[in-house]
Design a protein around this nucleic acid. Structure first.
Lengths: 262, 262
DNA sequence: TAGTGGTCTAGACCACGTT
DNA sequence: ACGTGGTCTAGACCACTAA
């Protein structure tokens, strides 16, 4: 009885070789979009591997949107969706430091916002409700505040510089009840995102990317003309089911872009 | 000897239950970022499953950047990178149609560009080199053209409307030698992206997102004031190792945004 | 009902890090 | 040397789809 001996000395794993072979067939045009490809069993025999190995290759390719799998039906070449563009926006401080550029942050303002100071935009964002006497609230999830002088939000505004040039104007609001000590930090030294991530487990978030005309305050901070185009990334992140922080990041249109590979 | 009987009637797969349990431990703060978690063997025993099942759960969580795995060392809770924002930009025609909004495309111009008409930006983008007599080329990969009247690029400009309002101005250039029949299409009926994808296998691409002031031509097409902020997505896609198409998509800043969930 | 993919097992060998 | 994760197997049962 011979021991089971497989060739696992290969530097390239079997599932990767199978993936490459399939990609070659698609790129060469041999397998057209929408067509069915061989079954797992067939491929396993052809490549001399077990079905699980083929399964891994096909599963990964379908996660990469190259294939589409339909249980009970088969595996198909996906309609290639090169219309989709995926953008990854990273932490600006980390990025600039790793790009070996001189990075600096300047705190422009820092304040505590009470219920009575709150504007409607932030009231909605953070779902805060001021409870007047004998009023009854509609939303069970919203935060109800009785004392109008209660601190509810922290606001900080920070200019981020790369090689001495202002590259981003950050406006951030944070739920004061969730991270009471937030406002005490020195954000010329500690990055706001990194601080929040370290303090609180973040669960999910949503964002928007827009092109907006720079208001005076922001134009001045970024050293550009008022009303110049700016690239604005807004993001809100949730912790324990509620908005923990909301941030608007303004970038000078001529000096900044998001980019990447498909 | 009893047959192997496992409970696979569960609607929730075992690997998913393990993933959920791990996520709970992280979100509750029980497992802190950077800490090592139990080994695959240990988790397999605890959950009463095979090591392969645990492996799948941990592999997926590390692909989702929740965990970090280091061969020979262990599995660790990742430093949660909620700084990263992933944006997915989709095909505008498909999106508007699926949003049940009235979609329309208007072809503004359509022309063939010869070598002699080529500007430097496109020359570089498509890596086209005009070969004069007795000149020697630097790049082996670049396309060398002898006759200055050879058609090298197609250019189309299209306005995309949603509910009658101009939502995107598309400027597209396509390698005329790769898809000679491109220019004959009626792009008020056929989407350029969809057409190219159907015609040629696309391999990869790169893109940038910027905020730019609208030039007169584009401001007029989008019915906004000249110099207004626009959100511009540029994308080039490769086929057979060369640039197949380059597209600039201009969006009115006030009317359009990219958005999504983290 | 036959055939497909989805999941799972109990074991194996390998590559890598730490000790 | 030992323990970790990375990969792979040969087989199994289940869920779904199509004929």
């Amino acid at each position: 009885m011979t021991k089971v001996k497989r060739d696992m000395t290969k530097s390239v794993p079997a599932y990767q070789r199978i993936k490459n072979a399939i990609l070659d067939n698609i790129h060469s045009g041999k397998w057209q979009a929408g067509e069915a490809i061989s079954t797992e069993m067939t491929l396993a025999e052809e490549f001399g591997v077990s079905r699980m190995t083929v399964n891994r290759a096909l599963k990964e390719l379908s996660e990469e949107r190259v294939l589409e799998r339909r249980q009970g039906s088969g595996t198909f070449v996906a309609q290639q969706q090169f219309n989709h563009t995926f953008v990854e926006v990273r932490n600006i401080a980390q990025d600039l430091r790793s790009a070996k550029r001189d990075y600096q942050a300047q705190v422009v303002s820092k304040r505590t916002i009470t219920v009575s100071m709150l504007d409607d935009e932030m009231r909605r964002k953070f779902d805060i409700e001021e409870v007047a006497v004998s009023s009854h609230s509609k939303s069970a999830a919203s935060k109800k505040i009785n004392n109008p002088e209660t601190a509810v939000l922290y606001e900080v505004k920070i200019i981020h510089f790369a090689d001495g040039l202002p590259i981003q104007f950050e406006e951030r609001w944070v739920d004061a009840n969730k991270i009471p000590e937030f406002i005490e930090q020195d954000f010329s030294e500690v990055n706001t995102s990194e601080y929040l991530i370290a303090k609180s487990p973040l669960e999910r978030g949503s964002y928007t990317i827009r092109a907006l005309a720079a208001p005076n305050e922001i134009a001045e901070a970024l050293q550009i003309a008022p009303q110049s185009p700016t690239l604005v990334l807004c993001r809100q992140t949730f912790s324990a089911g509620q908005v923990l922080t909301f941030v608007k990041m303004w970038h000078a249109g001529e000096r900044y872009q998001f980019s990447g590979e498909l």
